[in-house]
Each structure stands twice: as C-alpha cells, then as structure tokens.
Design a protein around this nucleic acid. Structure first.
Length: 651
RNA sequence: GCCGGAUUAGCUCAGCCCGGUAGAGCAGCUGAUUUGUAAUCAGAAGGUCGAGGGUUCGAAUCCCUCAUCCGGCACCA
C-alpha cells in the first residue's frame, strides 16, 4: 500500500545535490532530506522541518534520487510557518477526535496568521471545550509522533474513510479525478487525508499556538449546505511570536471604531434604525471635513457634482438590470397609487439619466459626474458590522462617461488622484488588484480585450503595480480594486474603478461623434473612499482615534489654570475660531492636570493652557497629544502655526 | 440568512450554576477647593435586570419566542 514519495530517477546512479550556497554534495545512492541534513550537520538535522527541491516544498522524508537544487527548511524560513500551522491543524483534528469520538473531520487549511479545521458534530463546541482541546493538543505534541506519508489507491481510500464513518472525507476524495492516487498522513494511531507536506513529527509544532474561537461554517462554503463547526487557531514559531500576535489582536480591539466612536462621541447605532448611523456633532464634523476635502479634489479634476433622487420607480431598476438581481436587497416603498419605488442602492442609473438629458457630443467627453450619493441596501442581518457594513451609506461616487480611447488616460488620472488622496489620509501602502473577465459576462471578447488592455496600460503608466485576480471582474467589465494596508497591517478594500460597457447600452446613453453618428459612451464607475461610513471606520482604527490635526473634530482646547484667566482664554478661543481652528474652551474649576488628562483621553491634538503668566505676556502654553512637554508661544504665533496645520493637505 | 455567544445604572462589569424582588468602579449631579500639565475631596442620587410569554407562593436567576449586539460563515450591484 505504501510507496515512498520520491523523484523518479534511474537507479544506481550517484546523486549530486546543490545546496543554496551553490556547493554540491554527492551521494552514492538516493537520499532523504533528513539524510542530507544529517550529512551537513547534526544541528541542521535537528532543526530540519522540510525539504525544498527545485523550489517545491516536500516532506523531509522525501527521497531525492536525481540531481537537484535543494534546501533544508528550518523554523527560521518563512515557509516554516505554513508547515507548523498545517501540522497544528492535524493535531487539532486528532485532539478533537480523541476527546469527542464520532466527530467527523472535513477540511483544515492554513489561513493568514493561523489555521482552522471544520468538524461535523451535532453538539456545539463551547469555549470551555476549546481549552480542553488545546490541552490535548499539547499532549499530542509532547508524544512527538512522526508524520508518515502514505500513498493510497483512490477507491480503497473512499472505502476506508466510509468505513471509519468519515463521510465528508470520502466525499472529498470522490471529488478528485478518477485514477489519481491520494495521500494520507499518519501521526501515531491517527491519520488524515492530506496533500502535505508536513514536518517530521508533532513535536516540531512547539508551544507557540493557541485556539482562538469556534464558529459556524458551511460545508464547501455553500450556504445551501449544512453548517459545520470551525475551530480557529493561530500558530507561530515560538511562544514569543505568539505573544506578539496576541498583543496585536488586543491592540486591534482597543482600536475598534465602535468603541472609539462611542468614547469620542462620534456616532451611535440603535435598534430602531439598524444599520444606519446616528452621527453626533463631532462625528459629523469629521465627516464634513472629509467630504469637503474630496469635493475640493474633484473640483481640481474637473468633475461636475450632481444630486439624484433617493426614491426611484422600479421600472428604472428593471431597465438597469438591478431589480432582477438585487431585488431582495433593496428597500422599497409602495404608494397609494400602487407604484413601487426603491430607495436607490447605487447612483449609476440616475447619473445616466442626467447624461441623457439633451444631446451629448464627443466634445463633452470625458464627462466626469460625481455625487456624494446616499444609498440604501438591505444587507443581510449577519453582515452588519459597525460603520464597516451598514444599510445606509454615502459613496464618494462618480461616473466618467468617455470613449473607449479615453479609458487609459482617465484611469491613469484617477489612479494618480486616488494615491494622492490616500497619502493625505496617512496611507502609504496601497495594493491594486486587477480583476479580469469572469466566465459569465456581457460584451464581446474584442471589447473585453480592449478594456482589459486599456486598464492595465493605465495602471502601468501611473507607475503602479497590480496583482491579477483572474475571473473576478464584474459581468459588465474589468475592474481595479484598491486595497489600503493600515497601521496594524490589515487590508481594507476601498477604492474601485470599473469599466462598464453594458449599462450605457441598457439605459440607452449615447453621444454624437465626430462622424455625426450616435455612439455608446463607456462608463467608468469609480470611488476613492468607497463609503464615507466605512472609510471613517477604517480611518479611526488606523489612527487609533488620534486623528491628524486637520481631521480632528476638536483640534484644540483652551484650558485655564484658574478662573482668573477666563477672559483671556475666551479671547484665545475666539482668535482660534477666526483662524478656522476648531477650538473649545475648558474654564471649569478643575486642576490643569485633570483637564490635561481628560482632553488627552478624548484625543484632542492640542491643549493650550493659559494661566497668570500667559495672560500677562499674551502667550499660550501649547501641549501636543502624546507628548509630555509644553511650548510657550506668543498668541499670534500659535494662531499662525495652527491655522496653517488646520488647512490640511490642500493648504 | 445560518451556527455559536452575549444583553444588568451613561460606560466597564459582579450577581445567574444552587429562585427569596440588585451591587461595585468610572462618568454624571450637588457642595467645598482656584489649582501650572494624564484623575482634589465630600455628599446625594441613579436600574420596569433587551422585549413578550410561561413555570412558581415568589424570576435578573429556570423554560419558550422575538429583537439587537458580538465572533465567524454565506452575501457584498
């Protein structure tokens, strides 16, 4: 039944192994990775986790039978984490089956920062169960059973797993191509269907892992299937790395925008308007600063701003095709005369209506039509998540009506603005995904060729790089997605640019070309922030609530030392106000240290303390958030300085 | 929508297992203190225990239904 996992090669010949440093070692017979490691040194033999042959990672027990470039993978290699995590997933599954007999195993892949394993078991796992399972995992690791790979016949494997009562595993194998051998890994008396590779033995996993949570997950990711129980874990090289990661999770919790939103009095939610934001004065101030900023950026780019209806008759949505596809996710209203209106879930059909008013000439293109478009979508209840996923939101939306030949120039121009906007908000790490034609799509291949090519050239011309997201484009055209990486290394997709040659057709948008004939414009759907709500949520977490001066709702607090300074403090506040700085006054009968603490906790960027000395010299003592020192400055100087900062990146 | 967990004062949480009608800290309020850079002291007050139903002499506590929130899954024009 078993066969060694080996590279096909003529027998009897010597084997020349090239190591990463370029040196060549010769063996007079085929050797395993473990033997190679041992030949190099006992330290390496002990540290070895896996073998890399010509760039492919395989088990250390793999026999190398012909000349190859190899490397011994140890814990220090980045790839080691993949092995440790997958080993941990197997140990998790073994622990679960030891403690809860009758539980079926399904799949257990690696994910970012860890792994999970999905189980089929009638009774739910509780948090207490997790602790118990984790303890058992430590035991299994201590047993240090070797991982042993076996190659099984496909049909035998199906029978074997069925006999074990592992119907999910049997179903998985049945999905593999007929005639293909399958592999199984044993650890002690437990085994699992697995492609591998694995480390030499369970002991190599170490102690740097932890089970994090249990959650439901559909079998094969399909909501029509039964729900399994997924146990998530994280695993690292050692306990120190684990602690570091857990600290990161705690930091993320501290930065949670829902928590900061309440603490900083920015917004709230309540049951009577699920998924819709109640913006408080400070939150709305922040929102408006961002909106004003974007409006100024769009003006520079010669966009026109419009405003379109909230309620639109269903017939328009039927024409656009949204009714058929998204009807369940639209809010509708029925009037006395039995007409059905939908709260707009997007702005594009309305923008086309404006475009269609009057004849458009090729001279009008590109026409960049922007709207801070307020949209409603009836998102599934389980999808709601603070500001990140809401049912009422506003996009920094715009549609560029242009010719096919203008796609590249417009895209490039958009990329430039977008990158500059992100920089202004403190994001330097932006990734671009390019999604090309999906299997089911509208439009001819020729048009797709042209659109994809135009997009790619535009991104390259902007000096940007992208990763390919094959087949993930919209049915109406290819798209670019812009992903921000925040201060904690988390990714957030915000911006988008989508080429659309379907909607102008459906809604009959046209322009008169140079030739006097009617032509279809191409529409570029584009957004930089995405939704204001979501972007603000991301922004709060990125800055941990400590917003840059130009964004902070309250930029400065004038705090008095004693009430003798009240009049002067009011004067300072008025001067700040006149200079466009959002300032408040704190003349309460409290100690200055009490006020400093309170406004620091409230994340106000600047505290201006005024006491007897400042009144006499017409000065203020300036203290910045996060610093412990003060700077005493003339009032005029402070106004000039903070006034400049308040103007923000646009100057 | 699905699985699991949670919901007690403005906030953070205890009380629930084992039923006898609610407690702390912070905030807020009142008073004193006029203070020089991350919490001055004192006092009084604050809760139909998410909603509805059931069991019981008696329910924050046990049972059911619903709502919302949290963590995932699915969805995301």
């Amino acid at each position: 039944m078993t066969a060694p996992n080996q590279t096909a090669a003529p027998q009897g010949a010597g084997v020349a192994i090239t190591l990463p440093d370029g040196s060549v070692r010769r063996f007079d017979r085929p050797v395993t990775g473990a033997e190679i490691a041992a030949a190099i040194g006992p330290g390496l033999a002990k540290a070895a986790l896996a073998l890399e042959i010509d760039g492919r990672i395989v088990d250390l027990a793999t026999v190398v039978a012909r000349a190859a470039r190899i490397a011994i993978v140890t814990r220090k290699d980045p790839i080691a984490l993949e092995i440790i995590r997958h080993d941990a997933a197997h140990v998790l599954a073994q622990a679960v089956q030891e403690i809860y007999p009758g539980t079926q195993v399904t799949i257990g892949p690696n994910i970012e920062n860890g792994f999970y394993y999905d189980f089929a078991r009638p009774a739910p796992f509780t948090p207490e169960d997790l602790a118990r399972i984790e303890a058992r995992m430590h035991e299994i690791i201590a047993r240090n059973a070797p991982f042993v790979r076996e190659e099984w016949d496909r049909e035998d494997a199906i029978t074997a797993f069925k006999e074990k009562g592992e119907h999910y595993k049997a179903a998985l194998i049945e999905g593999f191509p007929a005639g293909e051998g399958i592999s199984v890994y044993r650890q002690g008396d437990w085994l699992d269907l697995c492609r591998g590779p694995h480390g030499p033995a369970t002991g190599h996993i170490g102690k740097g892992f932890k089970l994090l949570k249990v959650a439901g997950a559909y079998w094969r990711g399909d909501s029509r299937n039964e729900m399994l129980q997924r146990i998530y874990g994280t695993a690292w090289r050692d306990e120190k790395e684990l602690a570091h990661y857990l600290a990161l999770l705690e930091e993320a919790e501290r930065r949670d925008h829902r928590r900061l939103g309440r603490e900083m009095e920015l917004f709230h939610f309540q049951e009577e308007a699920v998924g819709s934001v109640f913006w408080h004065p400070k939150g709305w101030q922040l929102y408006r600063v961002i909106e004003d900023y974007i409006r100024a950026r769009l003006k520079r780019e010669h966009y026109v701003e419009v405003r379109t209806p909230q309620l639109v008759d269903r017939t328009l949505w039927e024409m656009s095709g949204h009714w058929e596809k998204f009807r369940d996710h639209m809010f509708t209203a029925q009037t006395e005369d039995q007409r059905i209106f939908a709260l707009k879930p997007m702005n594009c059909p309305c923008h086309v209506q404006i475009f269609r008013q009057g004849l458009k000439s090729y001279r009008d293109l590109p026409l960049r039509m922007a709207e801070f478009g307020s949209c409603h979508r009836y998102e599934p209840s389980g999808a709601l998540h603070g500001l990140m996923r809401v049912r009422a939101f506003t996009q920094d939306d715009a549609h560029i009506f242009c010719t096919e030949d203008q796609i590249t120039a417009e895209t490039r121009r958009f990329c430039d603005v977008l990158m500059s906007v992100y920089r202004d908000f403190g994001y330097d790490d932006v990734r671009i995904k390019f999604s090309d034609r999906p299997a089911t799509r509208a439009g001819t291949d020729a048009i797709w060729d042209k659109a994809e090519d135009a997009l790619k050239r535009a991104v390259e011309a902007a000096g940007l790089t992208f990763t390919l997201n094959p087949g993930e484009g919209a049915f109406y055209g290819p798209k670019l997605e812009f992903v921000l990486r925040d201060a904690l290394g988390r990714d957030w997709q915000c911006g988008t640019l989508q080429v659309d040659f379907v909607l102008p057709e459906r809604l009959d948008a046209s322009y008169v070309g140079e030739d006097g004939q009617k032509h279809r414009p191409v529409m570029l759907h584009r957004a930089i922030l995405g939704s204001f709500e979501r972007f603000i949520g991301i922004l709060i977490e990125h800055h941990a609530g400590r917003l840059p001066f130009w964004l902070a709702p309250v930029q400065a607090v004038v705090a008095t030392i004693t009430n003798d300074s009240d009049a002067y403090a009011a004067e300072v506040r008025d001067a700040l106000d006149a200079a466009g700085i959002r300032a408040e006054i704190d003349d309460r009968n409290e100690k200055i240290s009490y006020k400093v603490r309170e406004h620091s906790v409230a994340k106000v960027p600047v505290i201006l303390a005024v006491g007897k000395r400042e009144v006499e010299n017409r000065e203020v003592a300036l203290r910045r958030l996060g610093r412990n020192d003060q700077e005493v400055l003339a009032l005029e100087d402070v106004i000039t300085r903070l006034g400049a900062e308040a103007r923000g990146p646009l100057g």
